[in-house]
């Protein structure tokens, strides 16, 4: 009797397992999983960044100081991940806009600080610098939020500066490359990168740059700038990248 019960139980189990596996086929209704619970409200991070002094000669030190609250992931472009609050000495050779991103459960916040590097040498090297070098020094890439292809309000400034440079150097032609981070599908990321490159192009065209000077291409996640699996690196890879074309 016990043996029979056991084998009955086993066949019952096997059949219900079979039923589970085949649910897709017979259309038996299963309640859909409940929607994910909304995350608890977290305060939005705050961030501030300052550079002292904000105008120096080449080779002179500048102290960057920053403070954030409510952030778990803080990074500064060209420096990388940093403590939530702190300071660091830098010696910029060119005028630089330092850009800080603070991310936390409540969202993300950005702050920038501009250091102007002024010198006669600078003037001289500017006049001697090739157009391509000037392009590399002045035209800054545009960065995107995760799975987004609209230009962030915080990037409008640098994009306007890019447009201004291109207006002043009207014989430069460019390619805008759309890039994505490593997460998600190869094909979808290529399509997303297309929209990113187009968004940058459209912004430049609106700023008065002729569309005929601009080519676009998406590389999706095929040519990452950074290959570490964390948000700092992913942010580096979600970009519209400017390439100088002769």
């Amino acid at each position: 009797m016990r043996i029979k019960k056991l084998s009955l139980q086993r066949s019952g189990l096997a059949i219900s397992l079979g039923a589970l596996m085949l649910l897709g086929a017979c259309g038996k209704k299963v309640a859909p999983p409940p929607p994910p619970a909304p995350p608890p409200e977290a305060p939005a991070p705050t961030a501030s960044l300052s550079a002292t002094p904000n105008a120096v000669d080449p080779g002179q030190p500048v102290i960057l100081a920053w403070q954030t609250t409510g952030a778990t992931d803080v990074s500064i472009d060209s420096i990388g991940p940093v403590d939530p609050s702190g300071q660091k000495q830098v010696t910029p050779t060119d005028s630089t806009t330092y850009h800080l991103i603070a991310k936390g459960a409540g969202g993300s916040q950005e702050a920038t600080a501009r250091v102007t590097v002024n010198s006669n040498q600078g003037m001289q090297s500017t006049s001697n610098a090739t157009e391509e070098q000037l392009f590399a020094q002045n035209v800054k890439d545009v960065y995107f939020d995760y799975d987004k292809y609209d230009i962030r309000a915080s990037d409008q400034g640098s994009l306007q500066a890019d447009a201004q440079f291109l207006q002043q150097h009207s014989n430069i032609r460019i390619t805008i490359e759309g890039h994505s981070d490593e997460r998600g599908s190869t094909e979808y990321n290529l399509a997303l990168g297309t929209n990113r490159a187009d968004a940058v192009k459209n912004a430049l065209v609106q700023a008065g740059i002729s569309g005929s000077r601009i080519k676009t291409i998406s590389y999706g996640k095929e040519k990452p700038f950074c290959s570490v699996s964390n948000e700092t690196c992913w942010q580096q890879n979600r970009r519209g990248h400017f390439v100088y074309e002769k």
Binding site: K5, L8, S11, I15, G18, A19, L22, A25, C26, K28
Partner: peptide
Amino acid sequence: VRAIYRASLIFGLLFLLAVSSSAQ
């Protein structure tokens, strides 16, 4: 207990019938 097992067996059989009649 046996009744439950029998019911689950019958359900399983009905289910298998439903599957084979849709002939995937």
